[in-house]
Design a protein around this nucleic acid. Structure first.
Length: 436
RNA sequence: GGGCUCGUAGUGAAGAGGCCUAUCACGCCUCCCUGUCACGGAGGAGAUCGCCGGUUCAAAUCCGGUCGGGCCCGCCA
């Protein structure tokens, strides 16, 4: 019966079978070490028998094999345990030399990222590389746990749409049996519709953006963590996001400390209540500190986003910060303006380690106002199949509600201290990469 | 879409008019090696220097074009 690499230490003195991939061989003459990789990690096998070593001649890293050997406690072995007197059985021989080496950390220098992605199917077998995605899986688990605790219902909305929805961002158009369809750039309207059903909903799913952006934080396809909830206000939304980021971070460092250490991730400083600063104040402080004048600008420059996170990290002990008081003139039609300051939107962005990871806002829930804003801001037609379902729900009674969208890859990237979203993406898609 | 940059064995790098018949490291192949864990040692194979054209007695190196990357900005998660 097969034993997992992580389990071998539970069978001292016993002969066990381990199956997996040949990850590394070191031939020292009369003694050969090989590492076997399975889903739990690596286990070292010591070979003395020349005929066993010969079985590996000409076989490359990646060869699939089973090993029967005696478990021996050995302080010199990585993990304190190794297999002795092993008999090898080659299950799938690999004879073609792999194009990249996976037994040591892969290069993540910007200019070499292309190679990293070109050989992803193999490179992902590297332990540091797979650890990134093992952790991403834990992040989504932590998110789901948190949403479940807060009484959210997970939903799945269509990605194939009849028409563009949000407006603004470019959408992908595709041929749909001779008609034109688009790829969802956000589940925005569907999650709002579902607020009328469940009050609290979330979705973790891909979204598509046809923006020709070529930066370290953009992709044409990414995973959006979208949530929407009824009967809240903007400060409660802020509190919710504070708790969520803290929950995920604490969960991660508690459950995967060794993995995080392996990839040299340092736990971010995040205060229980994430500080909030108005955009105007950030402009002022940034302008004062750098000599650049951004006062009056309607958005934050990327450099300001980096600067303010450094600033709050040092002065306020939080590498995450909310940006509040966005100008209402740039609102989307479904957004809500602040009740006492109609020139400002009821919107918050969450910046984390220099990058915007969340945009959240209160939505306009009064049917007549949404209708008015749709015409004014988006020049939208209420009969358009892109808008009609949302309006139908609004007319049927929608409570005050708000929500947010968070980039899963950006969150992963920043939690792990990576420098490009694509490093936190299994098979990244950008303006010039559609494969692998 | 705009600006700036970079393309040299499978991978990562050095070479910046003649010293290049292109150097090094890792990987690969052969041999040696009984505690490796980026094992070590000896030897070997592997590159028409992204592509096209130009300048020059001479181009990996200079110029133009082209193709492919990267970074920044705009936009956003």
């Amino acid at each position: 019966m097969r034993i997992l690499s992580s389990d071998t230490s539970n069978y001292p003195g016993k002969t066990v079978q381990v199956v997996g991939w040949l990850h590394k061989k070191r031939l020292l003459g009369g003694l050969t070490f090989i590492n076997i990789r399975d889903r739990k990690g690596l286990v070292q096998v010591v070979l003395h028998d020349k005929t066993e070593v010969e079985k590996l001649r000409g076989l490359q890293i990646g060869t699939v094999l089973s090993v029967n050997g005696k478990v021996v406690k050995e302080p010199r072995a990585p993990g304190g345990v190794e297999l002795h007197d092993a008999k090898l059985k080659i299950l799938v021989p690999v004879e073609v030399e792999p194009p990249i080496e996976i037994d040591k950390p892969l290069g993540h220098k910007p200019e070499n990222l292309d190679t990293l992605f070109e050989y992803r199917p193999i490179g992902l077998r590297n332990i540091q590389e797979s650890t990134i995605f093992k952790i991403q899986s834990v992040i989504t688990k932590a998110l789901r746990d948190y949403f479940a605790e807060q009484d959210f219902t997970e939903i799945h909305t269509p990605k194939l749409l009849a028409a563009a929805t949000e407006g603004g961002a470019e959408v992908f158009k595709i041929d749909y049996f001779g008609k034109e369809a688009t790829l969802a750039q956000s589940p925005q309207f569907y999650k709002q519709i579902m607020v009328g059903v469940f009050e609290r909903v979330y979705e973790i799913a891909p979204v598509y953006r046809a923006e020709p952006s070529a930066t370290t934080r953009h992709m044409t396809e990414y995973t959006s963590v979208d949530a929407e909830m009824a009967f809240i206000d903007i400060s409660e939304l802020q509190e919710f996001l504070s708790d969520l980021l803290n929950y995920v971070t604490d969960y991660l460092w508690k459950s995967n400390g060794a993995d995080l250490k392996l990839i040299k991730a340092t736990k971010p400083k995040i205060t229980k209540k994430i500080p909030a600063i108005t955009m105007a104040e950030i402009h002022e402080r940034y302008s004062q500190a750098t000599g650049e004048n951004t006062i009056g600008e309607r958005d934050l420059r990327p450099d300001e986003e980096r600067w303010i996170c450094d600033y709050t990290g040092q002065k306020l002990g939080s590498e995450a910060v909310f940006v509040t008081d966005w100008p209402a003139e740039d609102m989307k039609f479904y957004h809500k303006a602040q009740a006492d300051h109609p020139k400002l939107a009821d919107r918050i962005d969450l910046l984390f380690r220099g990058v915007e990871i969340v945009t959240g806002s209160m939505r306009e829930h009064e049917y007549s106002l949404v209708l008015k804003q749709l015409k004014q801001k988006a020049g939208g037609d209420p009969e358009d199949p892109g808008f009609k379902p949302l309006l139908m729900a609004m007319q049927a009674g929608m409570p005050p509600h708000g929500g947010f969208g968070m980039g899963l890859e950006r969150l992963t990237e920043k939690l792990l201290g990576l420098h490009n979203v694509k490093e936190a993406t299994l098979f990244p898609r950008d303006i010039n990469r559609l494969a692998p």
